[in-house]
Every structure is written in structure tokens, then in C-alpha cells.
Design a protein around this nucleic acid. Sequence first.
DNA 1: AAGTGGTCTAGACCACGAT
DNA 2: TCGTGGTCTAGACCACTTA
Lengths: 259, 259
Amino acid sequence: MDSEKLIPFFRSSNWLQAGQGPRYIQLHRYIAQSIRDKQLASDTRLPGEREIAEAADVSRVTVRKAIDLLANEGLVIRKRGSGNYVRATSEPKILEQSLSSLSSFTEHTKLRGMVPSSQVIEAGLYTPTPLEISTLGLISGALVARIIRLRCGDGIPMAVETSSLPADILPNPADVKTSLYDVLRHNNCAPTRAIQKIGAVNASVSNAELLEVPQGSAVLQIDRTAYLDSGRPIEFTSGIYRSDLYEFISELRLSNDKG
Amino acid sequence: MDSEKLIPFFRSSNWLQAGQGPRYIQLHRYIAQSIRDKQLASDTRLPGEREIAEAADVSRVTVRKAIDLLANEGLVIRKRGSGNYVRATSEPKILEQSLSSLSSFTEHTKLRGMVPSSQVIEAGLYTPTPLEISTLGLISGALVARIIRLRCGDGIPMAVETSSLPADILPNPADVKTSLYDVLRHNNCAPTRAIQKIGAVNASVSNAELLEVPQGSAVLQIDRTAYLDSGRPIEFTSGIYRSDLYEFISELRLSNDKG
DNA sequence: AAGTGGTCTAGACCACGAT
DNA sequence: TCGTGGTCTAGACCACTTA
């Protein structure tokens, strides 16, 4: 087993930093970045979970939680009785985006080696639509902060995102220059979880123009409702993504009911 | 806390059966079905994890794994310091399909109260395409079993699925009348995990005709590669889903890197 | 037969929300 | 302050692959 050479790779000094969040998240981030950087090549066999646990000086349960995240993202394939392997990928032209753990558009684009940029199409406080009222749990008379942005990578239009937040969370929508989450983090109200729905629609005239695709092109629509730790919904974002540049990937566990 | 009335609901006699798989899977299935049956109403607060663990006579870790699955599917919202709540849903006309745990089309459709049916468009052994060779890891000269099916719910066309398998796994593709997975289970080679990619495309002439939608309509394309426990890929299915009937849902964990 | 991932337990401490 | 979910540990046994 020459995967034993990898053991020093997992020493905690390589990835563990106090105050940077849970260990399984940090370990996951370290391995995921190494895979995307090709430091861990396709089909590489990772050391056994017990070996990693010993090298990293954490429990096996913690190692498993980190590898579970990698498997959910499709970065690692588990093989019972054999080991965990870096998934072989075929150099896709299309950007794969994980469905389970999302970094923001800015971070995700950087990670893929592109230069992210944004263009604010519209930003302000408005009377909420019924959908916004119910999704965000707004009380009668409350206003909603709404921002429409065109997202680009290396100058190429990739997505149009419309974000709605309660006005008390984001009183000054015009402050958002690039990253909405940076502003929210600064105000100490960044969401930690979200529910998202994925569908397909034909591009509208205005979206087709912004995204520089033919009118009526099939595009992905991702609606995301994000929550604080307390469970309060504070963001509803509807994104239109170019389907020639994006695809969403996730692991699926098959139930195989014996019932 | 009147969620204490729910404690008898979680007694292991209500859901645990020997030989029906891991406890956290069985518990997850029991709760998920109860939510979809409206036995557990929207916004219901579940008992605390420690209470469920005691009532169900399993460890808290096992309860957490079951609830983690529910949260990934978007059926439950976790609220730190408060409790776990059944997610409020607004009676969608569109079928929500979980991205993390998939039952087969047949099971999923039944669960939604519809009558599933299938129509085999094509089935046989063929010379594999390059994509099939690389995805399924076929050796030179091997044949591929290919099945194209139109999937309906209550007689309404919902999806077109093209499935490819190595010929040694499915030597007689014509045997597949309704459920591919039933045949695979019978041959003891049902997959346990899969990686799937979601994209959007404009419906081709033939697919538009089968699905009874206008040509060029935006539809969802789900490509799924399924693996045995050993890690061998044994199924590649490319599905075209009507976007007016389907949407895919999942939970997202936001990293919120402090780095 | 040895090693692997998969499941499960019975604890423990923390940060946070509700009161 | 107290209960909650979130993290983490150090074990254990099983089914499976590999050899």
C-alpha cells in the first residue's frame, strides 16, 4: 500500500487551526482543496480511516464526517472493504458545483481559477411580493431589501441572482458592492443553512440578454431560502444559471428497501 | 412542551424490524413517511434528540444520523437551542424530489399518491458509445445493455430515461418490464450509491413529443452513475424530466469560512 | 486471515436560545 | 439558568474485499 506515503499529509499541523471552526469541516476543506489542486490525483487511494485518525490526532468518527462530506460532493468514492478513492473526473469544460456544501459565488469562482465580478442591476427597498412575505415570514407593512446582480467569471456572464432580505437584516441594500455574504457576516447575521430547489426554465428576454444566450435557452433556476442558526429565514435568492457553463453534482444514497 | 405527546410515537416497536437495514435508515424512513402522510404536521416540534433516543431505545448518535437525513432532504429544519421542526411546505403543485436519498421512480411516484407506469421505447444489447465505455469502465469488445423508457404518473408523461449497463450485469434487457432495480435486486447486484449531475437542456423533437411539451421547452437533465458497494460502476442513466412537474430539493450547509 | 468501511454505543463538553 | 442542538471521543462488532 503506497498510500502510506500520504500519512504525513494528514498531520494536524497541516490543517488544524484554532478558531477556524469544527475539526471535520477544516479537515474536509483541506482534503477538498488538495483534490481540486491535483495534489491528490484521481483514483488515489486515501489511507484507511483509522490511519488518518491516528496521523491527524482526531477520532475516527471525526475523520468519517469529513469524508462523508467529500463523498456527498462526489469528490471521493467509498469502497467497502477496500478504501476511499479520489473520484476520477474527465476534465469537464462545465463547472461542477456541489449541492451539499456551497461556498458563495465569489469563493466558488475563485476556487475554479476564474476571476469573479458582479454588476448590480438593481438594489433598493421595496414593498414585498406575496412570495417574499411568506418565504421570509415578513410582518404586515415591513419592507424588503432586494438586489439583482449579474455574476461573471473572467468577464463571462454566468448567472443572474435576485436576492430578497428583510429590511431589518439589510437596511442599506446599496451597500452591497460584491459579496452579499461579506456584508451579512459583518453585521453578524450570516446564514448557516439553506434549502434549495432546482428547476429548469426557458430564459426570459431580459435574462437572455444579460447572460448573452439566445432567448428561450434552457437555463437552471435555483431558488434558495437561507436561515440563521435560530431558524429564522433571512434570505431568499432566485438564481438563473447558464446551463452550458454550470452543472450541479451530488451523491445519492439508494435506499434499496428490502420491505 | 406538548411535543412530549409524541414520545410514544417514537417507540422502537413502531418502526424497528430486524433484517430491514440500519436503525438510522429505518428511523429516517418512518419519520419521513409520517411527515408526508401529514401525521406529523408542518411546524411540529419534534421531541429533543435525547428524548427520542430514550423512547426509541437507541443512542443519540443514531437519532442524529436519522434527523441529518431528514434535514438534508429539507423535510426538517434544525434550530439550535430550540429544537427540530417539520418544515412548513406550501402544498406545491410541483413534485419535490430529494437529491440525497432517492427511491426509484416507481417508489417515488407511489409515495406521492400517483400510479406509476412505464413504456419501453427501446431495449437491447448494443455496441457501447465512448461515453458508456468510460463511465462504465467497459473492456474492449464488451457490449452494453441499453433501455429507453417513458415514465408516467397517473398516465401523464413525466420523464424519459435512457439506462446503460454492462451486458454481464443485465444480459437480457428485454426482461425489464417496469422496475430496473427490481431486476437488479433479483440478480443481487443493486447499486447502493450514485453520483448525479443536474443540468438544463431544451427538449429535443423526439423527447418533446414523448413528454407532450412544446419542442424546445426547458427540461431537467439528470445524469446518474450508480455503483455497487465494491465501487464498480454498473449503471449510467440519463433522464429528461419535465420541469413543470419536477423540482429537486436539498439542504445546503454554508461554510462561512472565518479564514 | 487481515484489513476495510459501516454501524452503534455511552458518555462528555460547548455555544446558543429560551426563560 | 436550563435545555437544546453541535461537536468529539474511545471504544466495539459486523459485513465485506482482498489476498
